[in-house]
């Protein structure tokens, strides 16, 4: 269990690591965890998202989400978004997108809208069931991690 001190910044990796490239968000966050991070920054493997993450998200002043998207852009394309509502989120994989979006909408209804920056990494479908990223996407992971880290450091 994390300490009682509320984290200021949450870096949340979303994705299913059993599903190849779909788990890219989690792979990026795992890499970030090994870096020296500014105080108050918490990295979390959020799995496929959903209501379980509500507490962590509410306790964070600012949230950076790294997630996979299937938007037709070339593999490894990184888009930085500032979504307001769930409908602003790009198409993620069907296996988990409803859970995360439901939760973010709920935060509006609870009167605590989150401050979210979303990094969406383009992947393609279909994905085979495997634990590893494709070698092509793997190459982009360090660059994506640096991009996120630089923004987190500048907060």
């Amino acid at each position: 269990m994390s300490s009682n001190k509320a984290p200021r910044i949450l870096v949340l990796g979303i994705g299913n690591v059993l599903m190849g490239d779909e788990g890219v968000g989690v792979h990026v966050v795992r890499l970030l965890e090994k870096q020296k991070l500014p105080p108050g920054v918490v990295c979390l493997d959020g799995g496929t998202g959903g209501f379980h993450l509500l507490d962590e998200i509410q306790r964070a002043g600012q949230i950076f989400i790294v997630d996979a998207t299937v938007d037709g852009a070339p593999l490894g394309t990184l888009r930085r978004l500032r979504p307001s509502f769930s409908s602003d989120y790009p198409t993620t994989l069907c296996a988990h997108d409803i859970g995360l979006k439901d939760m973010l909408d709920s935060l509006y209804l609870l009167g605590t809208p989150p401050n979210v920056t979303l990094y969406a990494v383009s992947i393609s479908l279909p994905q085979d069931m495997k634990m590893e990223l494709s070698p092509e996407l793997e190459e982009f992971v360090p660059g994506i991690a640096i991009e996120v880290l630089e923004e987190v450091e500048s907060v």
């Binding site: 059993l18 599903m19 299937v70 198409t91 069907c94 296996a95 479908l125 279909p126 994905q127």
Partner: peptide
């Protein structure tokens, strides 16, 4: 049924 039939939509379409 995520666990009944993981994991991908073989049609690759977004049925949302």
């Amino acid at each position: 049924i995520a666990c009944a039939v993981h994991l991908y939509d073989p049609d690759g379409k977004n049925i949302h």
